[in-house]
Design a protein around this nucleic acid. Structure first.
Lengths: 358, 358
DNA sequence: TGGTTTTCCGGTAACGGTTGCGTAAATAAA
DNA sequence: TTTATTTACGCAACCGTTACCGGAAAACCA
């Protein structure tokens, strides 16, 4: 099966008219008689004619659409971000087309190449596997408007929108220390990701400010970024099998999926939270407030992040040339303290801050 | 800013060669001398030349990509389905581009129009607002390969892949009756959706088979399909404010988001599950096994559903003409009984069936 | 009647790429 | 030397659309 659309040429033949006549009739040109216009418009309507946007793209070098490159939207944070982006573009008449990279550098390259000729601008969150962004750089130098969101790439100077990962991690770690934790572990995603690095930096600083000597055994990265449960499982096994005096009593997880999987691990192994291990993690998952024990999270302003990034891209699309200055917008995540990390004040079960979604 | 890619024409001028010579050199034609080939290839590499796929599309009338139309992937079920689809296409060299409709008929029409010239085939799950699918029919009659998944549309005869919504709902309702419920309510999504209708039919049949007279007040649809919490809240309010002898003691929710929101409602209002109300709902949300009480669900084979639908589309893409017979693949969902619906055997807390994700 | 303007429409080029065909020069064969 | 063949390249058409240009016929003016 193959799609065979109606063309202007076809209609011209059927109506015994010139191609340009039909085109102009459809554009309501004053150069065409009312009668001919009516004939053409009626026929086009009957055949459900739609101008071929591919042909228009080729001519006008404009696609009226933008592309979003996402790692995996099997992740509430990502889908929330995209939701924030879409509304802005829709109101401006842009179509939005989304492509997943599945954390694979190869897929990412193909996806970007695919989109590059088909969209007018790109919103990119780099995959965790990506090391080389020469293809993006090249695209950018040839004039493609590109905005990074969430996971940035310092090699390319353009607008970016990110969360304050450093502070989010700092405050979360600080909170664990306040609860009396002295051996706080860190399980991140892929070591290559900017967000993981920033979060680790915040974590380390908080420990240093708290006068804690970090044991390298507390820090774990996940080779594939934590997409699969088994990755987190391995890291958790390593942590929980440390000798008792080295075993962590607090844990900061630095990625949504890892947070959920760490929680799953602890429940499965009957390790009590926060008793044996106090857990707080980056997460925009729904239902974290109703799991038992309820889960403390660092929750990003996902929709807002999407909106801001979309605004940046729109400004690039409208600007005549590459702007001289680039902005990095930073959004503060929300720290939501719940049971899983509340060692003190166990009498006061009320969470510190709860933000209702919807 | 505007993307200005390198063209073959540009390179031909720079190298003092004909356009066709450059083209053939890049295709390693035997008609071009080795020396010229080397010059051209080297120059193309230096400039990072990529053939314009738009131009190729226009010529070859083939896009080597397929489109997925999704309602909202802010929904684990949807993202899982898409994940299942992608892998099949990727291995066949197709790019996948995803567009959201946000349950809006208008956006859906625009999305489909946008994709129609840019992809070779379409995987569609109809939005809950859609009543008229003439544009889809027209497209289909012009030869566009289209496969429906999850939410079908009987007006258009083509391949489809769906869950056995009827049986899923039937078994779930049956389970509630087995637990001693006698007043089982139903909260669905939009009345227009095929899946909601099928699920309601299963629910009604189970009640009939159980000898229960249905009170129409037990049945609620949600105008916008339940995207926002408030919709479910209104329905739940109505249910729970019924006089005590009419108030439901069991509830089947027929859509992922509605299930989560109903659960949220019950927890917020301190209505005990399953004591006051036994809850089971369609849901592919993660973490339902760790909420307290743990949530009984009808869980669809989402990834599988995606794979099967992808296979159907691939077969359409390869077939010469419109096939004479169309297949509807039906996948049985999994009923997972947990605490929220287990009125009996409260001593035996072990869930009946638990399927670990990942 | 002859010239000018207006009306209405068609041909053609261009967007970027591939491909069939034509062709000049170089080489080989006679 | 003449002819045939090969080599190596350019021209032009095509995909669907729009824009510029040009032109026939009708209408207008003198």
């Amino acid at each position: 099966m193959k799609f065979e659309p109606v063309t202007i040429k076809q209609m011209a033949r059927d109506l015994n008219l010139g191609i340009s006549t039909v085109s102009r009739a459809l554009h309501d040109s004053h150069e065409i008689s009312e009668e001919t216009k009516k004939r053409v418009v009626a026929y086009a309507k009957k055949l459900n004619y739609i101008p071929n946007p591919i042909a228009l793209s080729l001519r006008e070098k404009r696609n009226k659409s933008i592309g979003i490159v996402i790692s995996q939207f099997n992740n509430p944070f990502c889908s929330q971000v995209v939701h924030g982006m879409e509304s802005s573009f829709y109101s401006q008449g842009y179509q939005v087309s989304i492509v997943q990279t599945d954390e694979s550098a190869e897929k990412e390259m193909k996806a970007i190449q695919y989109l590059s000729f088909r969209v007018d601008g790109l919103l990119v969150s780099i995959s965790s596997e990506t090391k080389n962004i020469d293809h993006l750089k090249d695209l950018y130098e040839k004039g493609m408007p590109i905005v990074f969101y969430d996971r940035i790439c310092a090699d390319l100077q353009t607008h970016m929108t990110i969360s304050d990962n450093y502070r989010g991690a700092y405050e979360a770690t600080r909170h664990l220390l306040d609860q009396g934790c002295r051996r706080v572990a860190f399980v991140g995603g892929a070591v290559t990701q900017s967000i993981v690095q920033e979060r680790k930096a915040g974590y380390l600083q908080a420990l240093e400010d708290g006068g804690i000597n970090v044991d390298p055994k507390w820090i774990h990265y996940l080779p594939k970024g934590g997409v699969h449960y088994v990755e987190t499982e391995v890291a958790m096994d390593r942590l929980m099998r440390l000798p008792k005096n080295k075993r962590p009593d607090g844990l900061l997880t630095a990625w949504d999926k890892v947070t959920a999987d760490a929680y799953r691990y602890l429940r499965r192994h009957d390790i009590s939270m926060p008793g044996e291990l106090a857990l707080i993690g980056f997460s925009n998952f729904p239902l974290t407030d109703f799991v038992s024990p309820s889960l403390s999270v660092v929750q990003q302003q996902s929709e807002k992040l999407g909106e801001v990034a979309a605004g940046q891209l729109l400004s690039l699309l409208q600007s005549k040339r590459k702007p001289a200055k680039f902005h990095t917008e930073v959004l503060m995540p929300e720290i939501i303290i719940r049971e899983s990390s509340s060692k003190l004040s166990s009498g006061e079960k009320e969470p510190l801050k709860v933000k209702n979604k919807d």
